[in-house]
Design a protein around this nucleic acid. Structure first.
Lengths: 166, 166
DNA sequence: CACGATTTTGTTATAATATAACATAACAAA
DNA sequence: TTTGTTATGTTATATTATAACAAAATCGTG
């Protein structure tokens, strides 16, 4: 596993999560500014809500939070924000769970690889170039033109294994 | 890409598909017999319908077909059959499309890797051990205990690229 | 075969996830 | 400020999946 992004790999329960949030939002703002994208209040808030933790969050859960905050929101409100965020690499969809998780390196042209813990629900984003190049090679072999991919690995993370054994 | 299962790699439009079906059903019957599993009429028929082609099929599409055949069927009818088939490795779920596709080597303890053509809708199942071992290695590195994974690569297959260029 | 236990299927209802379609509002550029 | 464009509001509905309980089929055993 080369090039791993340690920041997003199963952060410990006691890590300073406000850092993650601030960081992600700052990067997103910068990225949008640089690319002439409109990170509106709504989109900004949705991104912030997604970054509330490292667990992929469902669209309707986001909707509920927006509503609780007094905003007029309906499913399209959320889905449109999610679409924007996904199109611009700020968020990933975890399709095995119908849920969405923040991406910490939007400008990096990567394809997603996730390990998802079924115990604590946290998702860690990998960036293993071995996997990437194996896939690319296979595709070339088959004459297949890749548009995108998702790799979702589910199981139990180290912390949860330890917790279970103690 | 070692160990590739050529049988299931984007079969050409003119391949003798009845072979695929007969083969898959025979294997499934054998597998169930050997393992004391009940491949009931319903399950058998659902599996057959899934094998009607190499495109992942949705649950409600299956339901519609069962209904058209005069069977009393409701969503649970289909989902239960699908659950059985998936539990026993006879079918894979393509979660990026909420659809289901037949597996041609149920007895082989593999993890799914698919290339899915957005043009023709066909799904090809790979078995690239490089990918598998890279994932396993990453997991070991992180102390992550893998339960299962899915890799879904979408793009355009060779035949569809050719078709588009002609 | 007859019995009870187990598994499978039928049935009704509803939950959870996502999009269509059109109206209004906010914004950007000239 | 007008005009075109993009974003959001709003209502309705489509799509995918499960819960809960009843009836039927199947299986092993006496």
């Amino acid at each position: 596993m080369n090039q791993i992004k340690n920041a997003s790999l199963f952060p410990s329960a006691d890590h300073d999560h406000s850092n993650c949030v601030v960081d992600a939002l700052k990067k997103a703002e910068q990225y949008c500014q640089d690319n002439g994208l409109r990170l509106t209040k709504l989109r900004h808030r949705v991104l912030e809500l997604i970054w509330a933790n490292h667990q992929p969050v469902g669209a309707y859960e986001l909707l509920e939070q927006l509503t609780r905050e007094g905003r007029k929101a309906a499913p399209p409100t959320v889905y449109r924000a999610l679409d924007f965020l996904m199109e611009n690499g700020l968020v990933h969809r975890i399709s095995s769970r119908n849920a969405y998780v923040g991406c910490s390196h939007p400008d990096h042209d990567h394809r997603a690889q996730f390990m998802i813990c079924v115990a604590c629900g946290q998702a860690a984003e990998l960036d293993d170039s071995t996997i990437g190049s194996a896939i690319t090679k296979d595709a070339r072999h088959l004459g297949f033109r890749i548009e995108q991919w998702t790799l979702e690995i589910t199981g139990i993370c180290e912390q949860c294994i330890k917790k279970a054994n103690s």
